[in-house]
Design a protein around this nucleic acid. Structure first.
Lengths: 200, 200
DNA sequence: CAAATAAATGAATAAAAATTCATTTATGCA
DNA sequence: TGCATAAATGAATTTTTATTCATTTATTTG
């Protein structure tokens, strides 16, 4: 019995297929970018017929936009996972620093998708502002560090944020590409570099 | 009289059109990515007929690959512009640091293209290694800093490089997007942050 | 178990994009 | 100046890709 089967005998939709489609799409984009994406490839990769994709999505544009909305929601919550107000400054910073790094490594295809989406024919202006809003919680943590006297106060919060974010991103990408392998020791070193940079 | 006009009366090619085509292509990709690129759009943007593009390039793939080859060559030389062996460590580092930043700002569409190309259906394995080779001259400068005792010696050169590069990239991109405006003061602050991070 | 219904399929069709080519235009040379 | 030639053009064609739809399959319910 399905929510929608108010008329007898409706075969129910298998919403698990949406995840298959998303996973296939992300895998394909990770390799060849949005430029290489076709509905036929998505169908093949997710082991469905092309027509099936159109049961769950209006068209290709809709599929890509829905995927963006889903990932955007998921990402924000992951960045702040485990954070609470009463943590000390260094612990707070390390937490979100690690969350960013782990996110970019564990959800690499998602990260690539979000970046490519941002510069694609699919993005709308309303979506552009969301990338910005993801920064505010981290700004708040850095600001706390300034207020408590841990962090240099002659540099913008924004700049300190960019310095950390850029480093993490490079580190994660090189790790995923296998160019520079990041283990626990390296992570410790890397965080200490970021920490040293912020310190008063 | 043209190089190719060994037979009387050949109208000569206008090789300036190649630059028009490249500029149009970069502008279009900066906005909508390689995913949004069509030959019709390139033609319109460069004020040529679609057929004209096929006089100078075999096809779309060829155009994109040729553009990649050109930019790759130009970029490497720009990063080291003004560098000489006898400069002190801090000056060397600041020079390449500034070159990277200025390059990413002044040649933003080129930078975007190179990044998107890297994850597109057009890249070949042989091209992947080139991105790597661009790093070596900067590695050498940082290594010099380690040898002369300016730079921490318990962290890989690669990691220090990634920390600087990532920061510069974020800074430049936010500046170009108009989200965080970078003036001379900010550049000074930013370099000092990178410097502090490297210091022993 | 059979009827009813939508899901799933993939070949057929439509739409979009790449590429060609018949025609026109501009240029170099005698 | 006029001829020869390739450049330039953009409509026509081909190719690729997105989307539809007639048909088959699976599921729900009485």
């Amino acid at each position: 019995m399905n929510f929608y089967s108010f008329i007898c005998g409706m075969r129910s939709r298998d919403y698990g297929k949406i995840d298959l489609i998303y996973t296939a799409t992300l895998k394909l984009i990770e390799k060849d970018g949005i430029a290489g994406l076709t509905m036929a490839k998505i169908a093949k990769e997710s082991m469905l017929a092309t027509g099936t994709i159109y049961i769950y999505f209006k068209n290709k544009e809709d599929l890509i936009n829905e995927l963006y909305r889903k990932l955007e929601k998921e990402s924000v919550s992951r960045f702040l996972k485990g954070y609470s107000q009463d943590m000390g400054f260094r612990d707070s910073l390390k937490l979100v620093w690690m969350n960013y790094l782990n996110h970019r490594i564990d959800y690499h295809s998602e990260s690539i998708f979000l970046e490519q989406y941002y510069r694609s024919p699919y993005i709308t202006d309303s979506h552009k502002s969301i990338a910005e809003s993801m920064k505010t919680p981290v700004y708040a943590i850095i600001q706390k560090g300034i207020d408590e006297g841990f962090v240099v106060d002659d540099v913008d919060v924004e700049m300190l944020f960019l310095a950390m974010l850029g480093f993490i991103r490079e580190l994660a990408d090189e790790h995923v590409d296998g160019v520079y392998v990041v283990d626990n020791d390296k992570i410790e070193q890397a965080f200490n570099l970021s920490w040293k940079m912020l310190q008063k």
